[in-house]
């Protein structure tokens, strides 16, 4: 799998997923936006989100790494780290 995603590309993918899967307006999505408080992502949505992220990094996805994420940028960083680790 390509470990070639830059952080910007990952951010764009996540932003797409948030808009298409959860009906979230593009202007609400910023790197600092809190998934829970600002974007209204609940624990059920979080599971859907992780399922959607799987194709990006294939079998190397570690769901437990998402336990500490709070913001959109945290998701980007967690994904980037997983890609680096598997590269």
């Amino acid at each position: 799998m390509s470990a070639s995603y830059s952080k910007d590309e990952l951010y764009a993918r996540i932003s797409d997923i948030l808009q298409n899967t959860f009906d979230i307006d593009a202007e609400q999505i910023t790197p600092q936006a809190q998934l829970g408080d600002d974007l209204d992502i609940d624990s059920i949505d979080a599971v859907d989100l992780i399922v959607q992220l799987k194709p990006i990094i294939g079998g190397n996805l570690k769901p437990e790494a998402f336990k500490t994420v709070r913001t959109v940028q945290d998701v980007v960083d967690a994904l980037h780290e997983m890609l680096q680790a598997s590269a």
């Binding site: 298409n20 899967t21 959860f22 009906d23 059920i44 949505d45 859907d48």
Partner: peptide
Amino acid sequence: TSPGMAARR
């Protein structure tokens, strides 16, 4: 339709 979207609506 994603389930997350349907659940919101």
